[in-house]
Amino acid sequence: MGRDASLRSATISVLVENEPGILARVVGLFSGRGYNIDSLTVAAVDEAGRQSRINIVTSGTEMVIEQIKAQLGRLVPVYRVADLGREGPHIAREMALIKVAGTGEKRAEALRLAEAFRARVIDATTESFIFELTGGTEKLDAFLALVRPLGLAEVSRTGIAAIARGTRTI
């Protein structure tokens, strides 16, 4: 194994026992060891609500990402750690609620862009829209960049949910 200094982004899913403090444990691991968190989501994923899935987007050198996976893997309530990008193709989606305020031509342009991006209008006043947009992080970023000059007032993003393609499971 070489010392590759180049950075890569990794999407890591962690299946955990849904116990109090587990999120603090994961977040504390990242802050305590100086790893980046670009996005983090967590929710219960089994019927009984006993297991949660945490999706983390992080970045670092190959050695750091391997460390992150090993560090997550040795947490006591962790069942499995999957490096989605490495283990095969995967899908990652994020949802954003985007408030654009304005009138006249800017308002009309925002609506046209929303259509082009397949964003849904879920709230409207004569001076504002709230769009709901789902997609990859890049799509959301692109839409936000376009509506920013058109009166982007507020954004709420979920962070990514990710899953492997095909029949493979975590």
Partner: peptide
């Protein structure tokens, strides 16, 4: 026994 100890500071073959 601890996977996080391996390749942490020194890359190994």
């Amino acid at each position: 026994i601890d996977p996080s100890s391996v390749n942490k500071n020194v890359p190994v073959e």
